[in-house]
């Protein structure tokens, strides 16, 4: 029953691959944006502490 739903009448590979790639690309964007923000934050904090010294 469950296997039937997942096989999508033979098109399962295509359908699940599409949804998987969609999640991968959208997720990668979130991941990269977070990484960039962390980098910027640490630089900005470093910058502000340096000027206060």
């Amino acid at each position: 029953m469950l296997a039937e739903v997942f096989s999508m009448n033979g098109y399962g590979v295509y359908v699940w691959a599409s949804y998987g790639i969609a999640f991968a690309i959208l997720g990668l964007n979130v991941f990269l944006a977070r990484g960039y923000r962390k980098k910027v934050l640490s630089k900005v904090i470093l910058n502000s502490t340096n000027t206060q010294d």
Partner: peptide, 29 residues
């Protein structure tokens, strides 16, 4: 909604970087 969320997130990061020398950023931090 995903696009708007990510846009706001990335824009906020960019502002943080460009305004790093202004005083209000230091208050936010």
């Amino acid at each position: 909604s995903y696009f708007v969320t990510m846009m706001l997130y990335r824009t906020r990061t960019e502002i943080l970087w460009r305004e790093r020398k202004s005083t209000w950023i230091k208050n936010v931090l």
